[in-house]
């Protein structure tokens, strides 16, 4: 089984947020209203976090795009009382919307604050319903959601490979954010395949992971030059 993971090169990323928008478009993420945004209820499975260090004029800023880390030792999964979030065979942290009771225990135990709750029933103006992705279900109100590593794309890729009677190749499965990133800052692939680009990059001296000290074993690696003060 491949162990899907991501490597994000912060030295390439220009904080353009194409990944953010691509994810919203791909995954039928409802948009907020000014009022709801003011209450910090924007759902965005991918977010770019600005981290500024230093004082004027000696500033240094890193932009950290953050999907779900798909932790190998996921604190969010442990606490779910009904198994609505679980680690699947390929190590993806899955979220079953129809199973979720909306207790938001998992959201509180994600140290990266990367799970989102549907405070209301998601709605789109009628015209905009046209652009919704038929491969991705629409969440009901009161359930938790998060980045799935575009799991539906994996399913489609697998179906396609099966139809073509061949093995699934690493490059068949590309999440939406990875596909659009103008700087190719995001790499995606099998961390267990030592020949894969992600596995190589994850071993690079520039590599680190967010809040590594918590032992969550994130499968999203970052590359950055210089010292890291996370």
């Amino acid at each position: 089984m491949p162990r899907w993971g991501m490597v994000i090169d912060l030295d390439r990323c220009t904080a353009c947020q194409a990944c953010v928008v691509a994810c919203k478009a791909e995954n039928n993420i409802p948009f907020s209203s000014p009022k709801e945004a003011g209450r910090r209820r924007i759902i965005s499975w991918m977010r770019v976090l600005p981290m500024m260090e230093g004082e004027y004029p000696n500033l240094r800023e890193r932009f950290i795009p953050r999907p779900c880390m798909h932790c190998d030792n996921p604190p969010c999964v442990k606490v779910c009382p009904v198994g609505a979030t679980y680690k699947n065979k390929e190590g993806l942290i899955a979220q079953v919307y129809t199973q979720c009771i909306g207790c938001r225990y998992c959201t509180n135990n994600c140290p990266y604050t990367l799970k989102y709750f549907n405070w209301f029933r998601p709605e789109w103006p009628e015209e905009m319903e046209n652009y919704l992705n038929p491969d991705v279900s629409i969440r009901s109100k009161g359930v938790v959601e998060k980045c799935t590593f575009c799991h539906h794309r994996l399913q489609k890729a697998r179906e396609k490979a099966r139809a073509e009677n061949r093995e699934l190749k690493e490059e068949d499965y590309i999440p939406a954010c990875v596909q659009t990133c103008p700087t190719d800052a995001i790499y995606f692939g099998d961390l267990d395949d030592s020949k894969s680009k992600v596995a190589q990059l994850a071993r690079s001296p520039r590599a680190f992971r967010l809040l590594e000290e918590l032992g969550t074993e994130p499968k999203v690696y970052y590359l950055s030059e210089g010292e890291w003060h996370g």
Binding site: C16, Q17, A18, V20, V21, A22, A25, P125, E126, E127, M128, N130, Y131, Q179, T180, C181, P182, D184
Partner: peptide, 22 residues
């Protein structure tokens, strides 16, 4: 020019096309 890549503006064109305000 873009080799399969798009900026956020290109990605978001869906919200222009299907804007209810058209």
């Amino acid at each position: 020019i873009n080799r399969g890549k798009l900026c956020p503006v290109g990605q978001a064109s869906l919200q222009v096309l299907y804007s209810p305000d058209r």
